[in-house]
Design a protein around this nucleic acid. Structure first.
Lengths: 210, 210
DNA sequence: CAATTAATAGATCATCCGATCAATAGGGTT
DNA sequence: AACCCTATTGATCGGATGATCTATTAATTG
Protein backbone atom coordinates (compact mmCIF):
# COMPACT_ATOMS: atom_id res chain seq x y z
CA UNK A 1 0.00 0.00 0.00
CA UNK A 2 1.36 3.34 -0.95
CA UNK A 3 0.23 5.38 2.00
CA UNK A 4 1.82 8.78 2.18
CA UNK A 5 4.66 8.34 4.65
CA UNK A 6 4.22 10.86 7.44
CA UNK A 7 6.99 13.39 7.36
CA UNK A 8 9.04 13.04 10.45
CA UNK A 9 9.80 15.87 12.81
CA UNK A 10 9.32 18.84 10.52
CA UNK A 11 9.59 21.38 13.27
CA UNK A 12 7.80 24.47 12.01
CA UNK A 13 9.14 26.56 14.85
CA UNK A 14 12.41 26.12 16.73
CA UNK A 15 11.80 23.47 19.35
CA UNK A 16 14.30 24.80 21.90
CA UNK A 17 11.81 25.91 24.44
CA UNK A 18 10.05 23.23 26.32
CA UNK A 19 7.37 23.98 28.87
CA UNK A 20 5.02 26.19 26.87
CA UNK A 21 1.98 27.84 28.43
CA UNK A 22 -0.82 25.27 28.18
CA UNK A 23 -2.98 27.41 25.89
CA UNK A 24 -0.17 27.87 23.46
CA UNK A 25 0.86 24.22 23.53
CA UNK A 26 -2.69 23.15 22.94
CA UNK A 27 -3.03 25.50 20.01
CA UNK A 28 0.25 24.24 18.58
CA UNK A 29 -0.91 20.64 18.87
CA UNK A 30 -4.22 21.34 17.15
CA UNK A 31 -2.61 23.22 14.28
CA UNK A 32 -0.05 20.49 13.82
CA UNK A 33 -2.79 17.87 14.01
CA UNK A 34 -4.77 19.59 11.26
CA UNK A 35 -2.03 19.32 8.66
CA UNK A 36 -0.92 15.94 9.98
CA UNK A 37 -4.33 14.31 9.66
CA UNK A 38 -4.93 16.11 6.38
CA UNK A 39 -1.77 14.44 5.09
CA UNK A 40 -2.09 10.90 6.35
CA UNK A 41 -5.77 10.53 7.19
CA UNK A 42 -7.68 10.18 10.41
CA UNK A 43 -6.01 6.82 11.04
CA UNK A 44 -2.73 8.66 11.51
CA UNK A 45 -0.82 7.46 14.56
CA UNK A 46 -0.38 9.60 17.64
CA UNK A 47 3.30 8.74 17.76
CA UNK A 48 3.83 10.16 14.28
CA UNK A 49 1.88 13.27 15.16
CA UNK A 50 3.98 13.78 18.27
CA UNK A 51 7.19 13.26 16.30
CA UNK A 52 6.15 15.88 13.79
CA UNK A 53 5.38 18.28 16.61
CA UNK A 54 8.70 17.58 18.29
CA UNK A 55 7.05 16.45 21.52
CA UNK A 56 6.50 13.11 23.18
CA UNK A 57 3.45 11.04 22.43
CA UNK A 58 2.40 10.97 26.05
CA UNK A 59 2.20 14.74 26.15
CA UNK A 60 -0.67 14.65 23.67
CA UNK A 61 -2.76 12.85 26.28
CA UNK A 62 -2.06 15.57 28.76
CA UNK A 63 -4.06 17.96 26.60
CA UNK A 64 -6.60 15.57 25.13
CA UNK A 65 -8.26 12.65 26.88
CA UNK A 66 -7.91 10.44 23.82
CA UNK A 67 -7.26 10.50 20.11
CA UNK A 68 -10.92 11.06 19.23
CA UNK A 69 -10.79 14.29 21.19
CA UNK A 70 -7.83 15.48 19.13
CA UNK A 71 -9.78 14.83 15.97
CA UNK A 72 -12.77 16.68 17.39
CA UNK A 73 -10.50 19.66 17.93
CA UNK A 74 -9.26 19.30 14.36
CA UNK A 75 -12.82 19.32 13.04
CA UNK A 76 -13.62 22.37 15.11
CA UNK A 77 -10.54 24.22 13.95
CA UNK A 78 -11.16 23.46 10.29
CA UNK A 79 -14.93 23.89 10.05
CA UNK A 80 -16.37 25.91 12.85
CA UNK A 81 -17.25 29.48 11.99
CA UNK A 82 -15.83 29.06 8.53
CA UNK A 83 -19.19 29.34 6.78
CA UNK A 84 -19.82 33.05 6.73
CA UNK A 85 -23.18 33.94 8.23
CA UNK A 86 -23.27 36.72 5.72
CA UNK A 87 -23.54 34.70 2.54
CA UNK A 88 -27.27 33.95 2.53
CA UNK A 89 -28.07 37.63 2.88
CA UNK A 90 -25.63 38.77 0.23
CA UNK A 91 -26.71 36.06 -2.19
CA UNK A 92 -30.28 37.32 -2.01
CA UNK A 93 -29.47 41.02 -2.12
CA UNK A 94 -31.25 41.95 -5.32
CA UNK A 95 -29.70 45.38 -5.43
CA UNK A 96 -26.63 43.61 -6.72
CA UNK A 97 -26.67 41.88 -10.13
CA UNK A 98 -27.15 38.12 -9.81
CA UNK A 99 -24.00 37.35 -11.76
CA UNK A 100 -21.95 39.52 -9.45
CA UNK A 101 -23.48 37.90 -6.38
CA UNK A 102 -22.64 34.46 -7.70
CA UNK A 103 -19.10 35.38 -8.61
CA UNK A 104 -18.28 37.02 -5.31
CA UNK A 105 -19.77 34.10 -3.43
CA UNK A 106 -17.76 31.51 -5.29
CA UNK A 107 -14.69 33.68 -5.18
CA UNK A 108 -14.84 33.68 -1.38
CA UNK A 109 -16.14 30.17 -0.98
CA UNK A 110 -13.47 28.71 -3.21
CA UNK A 111 -10.77 30.12 -0.96
CA UNK A 112 -12.21 27.86 1.69
CA UNK A 113 -12.71 24.66 -0.25
CA UNK A 114 -9.50 24.91 -2.25
CA UNK A 115 -7.53 24.85 0.97
CA UNK A 116 -5.50 21.67 1.27
CA UNK A 117 -6.45 20.91 4.88
CA UNK A 118 -10.13 21.69 4.44
CA UNK A 119 -10.61 19.57 1.36
CA UNK A 120 -8.69 16.52 2.56
CA UNK A 121 -10.09 16.40 6.07
CA UNK A 122 -13.56 16.85 4.69
CA UNK A 123 -13.02 13.90 2.37
CA UNK A 124 -11.46 11.72 5.05
CA UNK A 125 -14.29 12.35 7.45
CA UNK A 126 -16.85 11.84 4.70
CA UNK A 127 -15.41 8.43 3.89
CA UNK A 128 -15.39 7.57 7.58
CA UNK A 129 -19.13 8.20 7.58
CA UNK A 130 -18.95 11.20 9.88
CA UNK A 131 -22.20 12.95 10.59
CA UNK A 132 -20.31 16.21 10.14
CA UNK A 133 -20.38 15.99 6.36
CA UNK A 134 -24.08 15.27 6.11
CA UNK A 135 -24.82 18.18 8.42
CA UNK A 136 -22.56 20.42 6.38
CA UNK A 137 -24.04 19.51 3.01
CA UNK A 138 -27.57 19.80 4.33
CA UNK A 139 -26.75 23.23 5.68
CA UNK A 140 -25.12 24.15 2.40
CA UNK A 141 -28.22 23.06 0.51
CA UNK A 142 -30.80 24.88 2.58
CA UNK A 143 -28.89 28.03 3.48
CA UNK A 144 -26.97 28.69 0.28
CA UNK A 145 -28.11 26.67 -2.70
CA UNK A 146 -31.85 26.74 -2.14
CA UNK A 147 -31.98 30.55 -1.82
CA UNK A 148 -29.79 30.65 -4.89
CA UNK A 149 -32.33 28.55 -6.75
CA UNK A 150 -35.04 31.01 -5.79
CA UNK A 151 -32.98 33.93 -6.99
CA UNK A 152 -32.50 32.34 -10.37
CA UNK A 153 -36.15 31.38 -10.62
CA UNK A 154 -37.09 34.94 -9.83
CA UNK A 155 -35.03 36.34 -12.66
CA UNK A 156 -35.27 33.58 -15.24
CA UNK A 157 -37.93 33.70 -18.00
CA UNK A 158 -40.92 31.50 -17.21
CA UNK A 159 -40.27 28.91 -19.89
CA UNK A 160 -37.03 27.72 -18.27
CA UNK A 161 -37.19 26.57 -14.69
CA UNK A 162 -34.04 25.52 -12.85
CA UNK A 163 -34.14 22.62 -10.43
CA UNK A 164 -32.24 21.98 -7.26
CA UNK A 165 -30.07 19.40 -9.01
CA UNK A 166 -29.01 22.04 -11.50
CA UNK A 167 -27.66 24.14 -8.66
CA UNK A 168 -25.85 21.15 -7.22
CA UNK A 169 -24.39 20.59 -10.65
CA UNK A 170 -23.02 24.11 -10.80
CA UNK A 171 -21.67 23.73 -7.31
CA UNK A 172 -20.15 20.31 -7.92
CA UNK A 173 -18.39 21.36 -11.05
CA UNK A 174 -16.60 24.05 -9.11
CA UNK A 175 -15.81 21.93 -6.06
CA UNK A 176 -14.42 19.25 -8.36
CA UNK A 177 -11.48 21.52 -9.20
CA UNK A 178 -10.43 21.33 -5.56
CA UNK A 179 -10.94 17.59 -5.52
CA UNK A 180 -8.68 17.15 -8.51
CA UNK A 181 -6.03 19.33 -6.94
CA UNK A 182 -5.96 18.13 -3.35
CA UNK A 183 -7.34 14.60 -3.46
CA UNK A 184 -6.16 13.19 -6.76
CA UNK A 185 -3.23 15.58 -6.87
CA UNK A 186 -3.30 16.26 -10.57
CA UNK A 187 -2.49 19.62 -12.20
CA UNK A 188 -5.23 22.25 -12.06
CA UNK A 189 -5.29 25.92 -13.02
CA UNK A 190 -3.22 27.92 -10.54
CA UNK A 191 -6.07 30.40 -10.21
CA UNK A 192 -9.48 28.74 -10.58
CA UNK A 193 -11.36 32.03 -10.84
CA UNK A 194 -11.42 31.98 -14.64
CA UNK A 195 -12.88 28.49 -14.75
CA UNK A 196 -15.40 29.47 -12.09
CA UNK A 197 -16.41 32.58 -13.96
CA UNK A 198 -16.94 30.64 -17.16
CA UNK A 199 -18.95 27.99 -15.35
CA UNK A 200 -21.17 30.60 -13.73
CA UNK A 201 -21.69 32.36 -17.04
CA UNK A 202 -22.60 29.15 -18.85
CA UNK A 203 -25.04 28.41 -16.07
CA UNK A 204 -26.72 31.80 -16.16
CA UNK A 205 -26.80 31.89 -19.91
CA UNK A 206 -28.56 28.55 -20.10
CA UNK A 207 -31.36 30.00 -17.98
CA UNK A 208 -31.71 33.03 -20.17
CA UNK A 209 -29.78 35.35 -17.88
CA UNK A 210 -26.77 37.48 -18.84
CA UNK B 1 -13.67 8.46 15.72
CA UNK B 2 -16.76 7.42 13.94
CA UNK B 3 -15.33 4.90 11.56
CA UNK B 4 -17.92 2.76 9.86
CA UNK B 5 -17.97 -0.43 11.87
CA UNK B 6 -17.18 -3.33 9.57
CA UNK B 7 -20.16 -5.60 9.23
CA UNK B 8 -19.29 -8.97 10.65
CA UNK B 9 -19.63 -12.19 8.74
CA UNK B 10 -22.21 -11.22 6.15
CA UNK B 11 -21.85 -14.38 4.12
CA UNK B 12 -22.95 -13.50 0.61
CA UNK B 13 -23.10 -17.13 -0.42
CA UNK B 14 -23.86 -20.15 1.76
CA UNK B 15 -20.61 -21.05 3.46
CA UNK B 16 -21.38 -24.76 3.78
CA UNK B 17 -18.76 -26.02 1.47
CA UNK B 18 -15.19 -25.74 2.64
CA UNK B 19 -12.31 -26.75 0.43
CA UNK B 20 -13.22 -24.66 -2.55
CA UNK B 21 -11.25 -24.92 -5.77
CA UNK B 22 -8.39 -22.42 -5.42
CA UNK B 23 -9.58 -20.28 -8.31
CA UNK B 24 -12.99 -19.92 -6.83
CA UNK B 25 -11.73 -19.25 -3.33
CA UNK B 26 -9.42 -16.58 -4.60
CA UNK B 27 -12.17 -14.95 -6.57
CA UNK B 28 -14.40 -15.03 -3.52
CA UNK B 29 -11.73 -13.37 -1.42
CA UNK B 30 -11.12 -10.62 -3.96
CA UNK B 31 -14.80 -9.84 -4.36
CA UNK B 32 -15.27 -9.77 -0.62
CA UNK B 33 -12.19 -7.59 -0.26
CA UNK B 34 -13.55 -5.08 -2.77
CA UNK B 35 -16.68 -4.32 -0.79
CA UNK B 36 -14.86 -4.65 2.52
CA UNK B 37 -12.17 -2.10 1.68
CA UNK B 38 -14.75 0.10 -0.01
CA UNK B 39 -16.62 0.15 3.30
CA UNK B 40 -13.86 0.64 5.83
CA UNK B 41 -10.95 1.97 3.80
CA UNK B 42 -7.62 0.53 2.81
CA UNK B 43 -6.57 0.42 6.46
CA UNK B 44 -9.18 -2.26 7.04
CA UNK B 45 -7.87 -5.16 9.09
CA UNK B 46 -7.29 -8.59 7.63
CA UNK B 47 -9.04 -10.22 10.58
CA UNK B 48 -12.21 -8.26 9.87
CA UNK B 49 -12.03 -9.13 6.20
CA UNK B 50 -11.65 -12.82 7.03
CA UNK B 51 -14.54 -12.66 9.47
CA UNK B 52 -16.77 -11.14 6.83
CA UNK B 53 -15.76 -13.84 4.38
CA UNK B 54 -16.40 -16.56 6.92
CA UNK B 55 -12.85 -17.86 6.77
CA UNK B 56 -9.85 -17.63 9.03
CA UNK B 57 -7.40 -14.81 8.77
CA UNK B 58 -4.48 -17.11 8.06
CA UNK B 59 -6.19 -18.44 4.98
CA UNK B 60 -5.90 -15.06 3.34
CA UNK B 61 -2.14 -15.41 3.37
CA UNK B 62 -2.38 -18.70 1.60
CA UNK B 63 -3.69 -16.88 -1.43
CA UNK B 64 -1.87 -13.59 -1.09
CA UNK B 65 1.68 -13.05 0.13
CA UNK B 66 0.67 -10.00 2.16
CA UNK B 67 -2.04 -7.42 2.59
CA UNK B 68 -0.63 -5.13 -0.10
CA UNK B 69 -1.12 -7.91 -2.61
CA UNK B 70 -4.77 -8.22 -1.64
CA UNK B 71 -5.23 -4.51 -2.26
CA UNK B 72 -3.47 -4.81 -5.61
CA UNK B 73 -6.00 -7.48 -6.55
CA UNK B 74 -8.78 -5.17 -5.41
CA UNK B 75 -7.49 -2.36 -7.60
CA UNK B 76 -7.21 -4.71 -10.54
CA UNK B 77 -10.72 -6.04 -10.04
CA UNK B 78 -12.25 -2.59 -9.73
CA UNK B 79 -10.40 -0.69 -12.43
CA UNK B 80 -8.81 -2.94 -15.01
CA UNK B 81 -10.68 -3.18 -18.27
CA UNK B 82 -13.46 -1.04 -16.96
CA UNK B 83 -12.74 1.89 -19.26
CA UNK B 84 -14.26 0.79 -22.51
CA UNK B 85 -11.77 0.96 -25.36
CA UNK B 86 -14.71 1.88 -27.53
CA UNK B 87 -15.53 5.27 -26.04
CA UNK B 88 -12.96 7.41 -27.83
CA UNK B 89 -14.12 6.13 -31.19
CA UNK B 90 -17.80 6.50 -30.46
CA UNK B 91 -17.33 9.98 -28.99
CA UNK B 92 -15.75 11.14 -32.23
CA UNK B 93 -18.15 9.40 -34.58
CA UNK B 94 -19.59 12.41 -36.35
CA UNK B 95 -22.29 10.41 -38.03
CA UNK B 96 -24.03 10.55 -34.67
CA UNK B 97 -25.29 13.89 -33.29
CA UNK B 98 -22.91 15.33 -30.67
CA UNK B 99 -25.61 15.55 -28.04
CA UNK B 100 -26.45 11.90 -28.50
CA UNK B 101 -22.80 10.93 -28.28
CA UNK B 102 -22.40 12.84 -25.04
CA UNK B 103 -25.52 11.41 -23.51
CA UNK B 104 -24.75 7.81 -24.35
CA UNK B 105 -21.21 8.23 -23.06
CA UNK B 106 -22.27 9.66 -19.72
CA UNK B 107 -25.10 7.21 -19.49
CA UNK B 108 -22.63 4.34 -19.66
CA UNK B 109 -19.82 6.04 -17.78
CA UNK B 110 -22.09 7.00 -14.89
CA UNK B 111 -22.98 3.34 -14.36
CA UNK B 112 -19.31 2.90 -13.57
CA UNK B 113 -18.64 5.87 -11.35
CA UNK B 114 -21.92 5.72 -9.48
CA UNK B 115 -21.04 2.26 -8.28
CA UNK B 116 -20.44 2.23 -4.54
CA UNK B 117 -17.23 0.20 -4.66
CA UNK B 118 -15.70 2.07 -7.55
CA UNK B 119 -16.30 5.51 -6.13
CA UNK B 120 -15.13 4.79 -2.60
CA UNK B 121 -12.03 2.79 -3.47
CA UNK B 122 -11.06 5.44 -5.99
CA UNK B 123 -11.37 8.09 -3.28
CA UNK B 124 -9.52 6.07 -0.67
CA UNK B 125 -6.63 5.39 -3.00
CA UNK B 126 -6.59 9.00 -4.16
CA UNK B 127 -6.25 10.22 -0.61
CA UNK B 128 -3.51 7.67 0.00
CA UNK B 129 -1.61 9.32 -2.84
CA UNK B 130 -1.77 6.29 -5.11
CA UNK B 131 -0.27 6.72 -8.55
CA UNK B 132 -3.32 4.86 -9.87
CA UNK B 133 -5.55 7.90 -9.65
CA UNK B 134 -3.17 10.24 -11.43
CA UNK B 135 -2.75 7.73 -14.21
CA UNK B 136 -6.50 7.29 -14.46
CA UNK B 137 -7.30 11.00 -14.61
CA UNK B 138 -4.52 11.65 -17.09
CA UNK B 139 -5.87 8.86 -19.25
CA UNK B 140 -9.37 10.23 -18.87
CA UNK B 141 -8.18 13.66 -19.94
CA UNK B 142 -6.26 12.66 -23.02
CA UNK B 143 -8.39 9.79 -24.28
CA UNK B 144 -11.90 11.05 -23.50
CA UNK B 145 -12.10 14.70 -22.58
CA UNK B 146 -9.56 16.11 -25.03
CA UNK B 147 -11.20 14.47 -28.06
CA UNK B 148 -14.49 15.70 -26.68
CA UNK B 149 -13.10 19.23 -26.61
CA UNK B 150 -12.12 18.90 -30.26
CA UNK B 151 -15.57 17.67 -31.18
CA UNK B 152 -17.19 20.66 -29.56
CA UNK B 153 -14.72 23.06 -31.13
CA UNK B 154 -15.45 21.54 -34.51
CA UNK B 155 -19.14 22.16 -34.21
CA UNK B 156 -19.26 25.35 -32.18
CA UNK B 157 -19.48 28.76 -33.86
CA UNK B 158 -16.11 30.51 -34.04
CA UNK B 159 -16.93 33.24 -31.58
CA UNK B 160 -17.19 30.82 -28.64
CA UNK B 161 -14.25 28.58 -27.96
CA UNK B 162 -14.43 25.98 -25.20
CA UNK B 163 -11.37 25.27 -23.07
CA UNK B 164 -10.17 22.10 -21.44
CA UNK B 165 -11.27 23.37 -18.03
CA UNK B 166 -14.80 23.75 -19.37
CA UNK B 167 -14.85 20.07 -20.20
CA UNK B 168 -13.50 19.19 -16.75
CA UNK B 169 -16.26 21.33 -15.32
CA UNK B 170 -18.93 19.42 -17.18
CA UNK B 171 -17.33 16.18 -16.12
CA UNK B 172 -16.89 17.21 -12.49
CA UNK B 173 -20.44 18.36 -12.12
CA UNK B 174 -21.63 14.90 -13.12
CA UNK B 175 -19.09 12.98 -11.05
CA UNK B 176 -20.03 15.07 -8.05
CA UNK B 177 -23.43 13.38 -7.92
CA UNK B 178 -21.65 10.11 -7.21
CA UNK B 179 -19.43 11.77 -4.63
CA UNK B 180 -22.45 13.13 -2.79
CA UNK B 181 -24.13 9.75 -2.86
CA UNK B 182 -21.30 7.39 -1.97
CA UNK B 183 -18.77 9.52 -0.10
CA UNK B 184 -20.85 12.04 1.82
CA UNK B 185 -23.85 9.73 1.82
CA UNK B 186 -26.48 12.37 1.35
CA UNK B 187 -29.67 11.94 -0.69
CA UNK B 188 -29.30 12.19 -4.47
CA UNK B 189 -31.71 11.53 -7.32
CA UNK B 190 -32.38 7.82 -7.63
CA UNK B 191 -31.73 8.04 -11.35
CA UNK B 192 -29.12 10.68 -12.21
CA UNK B 193 -29.82 10.55 -15.95
CA UNK B 194 -32.18 13.52 -15.85
CA UNK B 195 -29.61 15.70 -14.08
CA UNK B 196 -26.94 14.53 -16.49
CA UNK B 197 -29.10 15.27 -19.50
CA UNK B 198 -29.82 18.78 -18.26
CA UNK B 199 -26.15 19.40 -17.51
CA UNK B 200 -25.13 18.26 -20.97
CA UNK B 201 -27.81 20.40 -22.59
CA UNK B 202 -26.79 23.48 -20.63
CA UNK B 203 -23.23 22.86 -21.66
CA UNK B 204 -23.98 22.46 -25.35
CA UNK B 205 -26.36 25.37 -25.36
CA UNK B 206 -23.75 27.69 -23.90
CA UNK B 207 -21.49 26.88 -26.84
CA UNK B 208 -24.18 27.60 -29.36
CA UNK B 209 -25.04 23.96 -29.99
CA UNK B 210 -28.49 22.36 -29.73
C1' DC C 1 -12.24 -48.03 1.24
C1' DA C 2 -7.68 -46.59 2.14
C1' DA C 3 -4.14 -43.37 0.86
C1' DT C 4 -2.67 -39.09 -0.70
C1' DT C 5 -2.88 -34.28 -1.09
C1' DA C 6 -4.27 -29.82 -0.39
C1' DA C 7 -7.30 -26.60 2.15
C1' DT C 8 -8.28 -24.98 6.58
C1' DA C 9 -8.06 -23.75 11.54
C1' DG C 10 -5.89 -22.31 15.65
C1' DA C 11 -2.02 -21.17 18.19
C1' DT C 12 1.79 -18.08 18.16
C1' DC C 13 5.37 -14.34 17.13
C1' DA C 14 7.18 -9.70 16.77
C1' DT C 15 5.67 -5.32 16.25
C1' DC C 16 2.72 -1.46 16.78
C1' DC C 17 -0.86 1.26 18.90
C1' DG C 18 -3.52 4.11 22.30
C1' DA C 19 -3.29 5.21 26.84
C1' DT C 20 -1.36 5.46 31.84
C1' DC C 21 1.76 6.90 35.44
C1' DA C 22 5.61 7.90 38.18
C1' DA C 23 9.85 10.52 37.72
C1' DT C 24 12.16 14.62 35.93
C1' DA C 25 13.29 19.21 34.90
C1' DG C 26 11.96 24.08 33.14
C1' DG C 27 11.22 28.57 34.63
C1' DG C 28 8.77 31.97 37.26
C1' DT C 29 8.55 33.62 42.27
C1' DT C 30 10.42 34.95 46.40
C1' DA D 1 20.12 31.09 44.80
C1' DA D 2 16.81 28.12 46.66
C1' DC D 3 12.02 26.80 46.09
C1' DC D 4 7.93 25.11 44.15
C1' DC D 5 4.58 24.13 40.71
C1' DT D 6 3.56 21.71 36.76
C1' DA D 7 4.72 20.86 31.86
C1' DT D 8 7.17 17.27 29.96
C1' DT D 9 9.33 12.93 29.66
C1' DG D 10 10.34 7.89 29.39
C1' DA D 11 9.06 3.54 30.71
C1' DT D 12 5.32 0.51 30.46
C1' DC D 13 0.71 -1.92 29.91
C1' DG D 14 -2.95 -4.46 27.50
C1' DG D 15 -4.73 -5.20 23.34
C1' DA D 16 -4.55 -5.29 18.28
C1' DT D 17 -2.22 -6.34 13.89
C1' DG D 18 0.27 -8.55 9.91
C1' DA D 19 2.31 -12.66 9.16
C1' DT D 20 4.03 -17.64 10.15
C1' DC D 21 3.78 -22.44 11.35
C1' DT D 22 1.91 -26.85 12.61
C1' DA D 23 -1.78 -30.02 13.27
C1' DT D 24 -6.24 -31.29 11.49
C1' DT D 25 -9.72 -32.24 8.24
C1' DA D 26 -12.03 -32.58 3.86
C1' DA D 27 -12.06 -34.08 -0.87
C1' DT D 28 -9.88 -36.74 -4.67
C1' DT D 29 -7.71 -40.76 -6.67
C1' DG D 30 -6.72 -45.54 -7.45
Amino acid sequence: MDQITPTLAVATEPVERRRLPPEERRRQIVEGAVTFFADVGLDGKTRDLAKRLGITQSLLFNYFANKAEIIEAVYAHVYLDRLSEDWPRRLTDRSVPLRERLLTFYSEYSELIFEYEWMRIFMFSGLAGAELNRRYLKHMGTVILLPLLEEIRAEAPQEVSPEMEDIWNLHGGIVYIGIRRHIYQVPTPEDPSRAIERAVDRFLQSFGLV
